[in-house]
Amino acid sequence: MADAPPAAGDAAAGLYRTIALIRGFEQRAVELVRSGVIRGGIHPCTGQEAVAAGTCAALRPGDVVTSTHRGHGHVLAKGADPARMMAELAGRTTGLNQGRGGSMHAADFAVGVLGANAIVGAAVPIAAGAAWAMRRSAAYGPGTYRPAAADGTDRVALTYFGDGAVSQGVVLEAFNLAALWRVPLVLVCENNGFATSMRPQDTMAGTVTARAAAFGIPAVTVDGMDAEAVRDATAEAAARARTGAGPSLVECVTYRFDAHHTWEHTARPRYRTDAEVEAGRARDPLEVQGARIARATRAAIDAETAGLLDAAVRYALDGPHPDPATALDGLYASGLRPRAGAL
């Protein structure tokens, strides 16, 4: 890019700012689930913020990402407006998807978020296809995704998936396709220690990185609680993708502080002890990055973020509920109207 790289201090503060934004967003979203404003619950990413912050810090505005059911952090880190994201979770017409997607399908094509996905692993081949298409000049038809910043054809796609997803067949098929066709893809495995209630040692034969190695995909494992380590590994993977050398995998080892889904807050399934969670929380990405910046800077960011997020909540609450008569508007891009369910 033509822009000069930011000073190191700015970069550290920038990472902290993103982590703090996601942390604060999830706290408020959980509160809104409790108060019934957000229906259907959410999958909070609390504890995993450094993965979203670090990976997106290594991307350019024209790059794209696909996300998971636990995707709020990814969407925010890529640049979506927190207010419109909160409005989406609240099912308002002012939301990113006009209230038609919700937490698990949040998308913001204007900033390169091609959608979170509720089926584990399903977005990995979608990202691979987008990456392949982005290399091609033909892929700029009217009404299609167009990067806000026209930064050439060396754009990359980055796809997030969890430790549970590496046992999903379509993910491994996509590894093969991406490697075979050298698509500019960055594979980010967010290993948070749990596939819902199951630990990797109970679901995964072998390892994440060995799966990549089987397809000739370079892979590294990094501390997913350290946003700078995540950023640096992602930058290397993205640079490799931009040169046409194909996909790389970054496994980020992190820990999910909160529930698989807010449903757990009342149902209380017992797959880990409170003591384990306490121990897991001891290494907090917010503190890791917070320790790298000046105290005054941190305080200023915290205050600014709180104001921003309080405004986001107000924006969400102020947004209109959709008109039921519009329920299936936009079902078909071609404008086809489905028949009504009753005469």
Binding site: V64, P125, G129, A130, A133, Y145, E173, A174, W181
Partner: peptide, 27 residues
């Protein structure tokens, strides 16, 4: 071969690969 792609026997992956390519402007 840039427009006519022989795929591995991975129906699920290449079907969603087409979805991603379509979202990025291909048909």
């Amino acid at each position: 071969p840039d427009r006519v792609l022989d795929t591995p026997i991975s129906e699920q992956a290449f079907t969603s690969f087409a979805t991603g390519a379509a979202m990025a402007g291909m048909r």
